[in-house]
Design a protein around this nucleic acid. Structure first.
Length: 204
DNA sequence: GACCAGATGTACT
DNA sequence: GTACATCTGGTCT
């Protein structure tokens, strides 16, 4: 059993004064590529002991289900680990990798369709180091996300996506990171990032 | 930029 | 039982 972990106190913020609104179900039920692009500029937040912690998302990757060899649901794979991918859009899917890291995904589309968006990087609130959340495992470490939270509903639980009315950031796209084994799918341009952020991981 | 150790859950034989 | 993974930080060139 994996224990809960506290978020980094430097990520404390106030979504009310920032005029952030929690994303609704319809936001997550759209196409996975659309959700992946629209998550740029949105906020991944966690409520912990009555306060909110989080960062502004600046890098994502889309994973397109059974037809996508890089996806955990490739070929219709369905196991205890990836079961949350089959939930309705708006749930959290967290997995453990390389013996020491966690990665968080936002599930998209409708129940039974196993597609998701990997949260690769976020910008911490003003005053925090630019690279505090600049990678999928660092984002999870900063927010205290572990597999204990896999399957949480982002509309009701302690984790949430918040948005602000603002124009979408200047967006770049590239092949996904770390999926060289995925054949043709390895070259698909499904990684999206905010071109003006210093918190994006790796190359542009 | 290239290479690599680290540490263990998970999928599959 | 075995192979490998949606990664990170450090070293060396």
């Amino acid at each position: 059993m994996i224990a809960e972990r506290a978020p980094d106190p430097r990520l404390l913020l106030d979504p009310v004064s920032m005029r952030l609104r929690r994303a609704d179900r319809a936001f997550f039920r759209r196409s996975t590529v659309t959700v992946a692009r629209d998550l740029l500029g949105a906020w991944i937040l966690r409520r912990w002991r009555g306060r909110w912690y989080g960062g502004r998302i600046v890098e994502t990757e889309a994973y397109l289900g059974p037809r996508d060899r890089a996806a955990h649901s490739w070929g219709g794979r369905r196991t205890a680990r990836n079961e949350p991918m089959y939930a309705e859009g708006g749930h959290l899917y967290v997995f453990f990798v390389y013996g020491m890291h966690y990665c968080a995904n936002v599930v998209t589309r409708r129940e039974g369709v196993a597609e998701a968006v990997l949260l690769r990087a976020a910008e911490a609130p003003d005053g925090s180091p630019a690279r505090l959340l600049s990678g999928p495992a660092k984002l999870c470490a900063g927010l205290g996300i572990t597999t204990a939270s896999s399957g949480e509903d982002l509309l009701e639980g302690p984790f949430a996506i918040f948005r602000r009315r603002s124009r979408r950031p200047r967006t770049g796209a590239s092949p996904r990171v770390g999926v060289e084994y995925a054949g043709e799918a390895a070259g698909w341009p499904l990684r999206f990032f905010d071109r003006d952020s210093r918190s994006v991981s790796g190359r542009r």
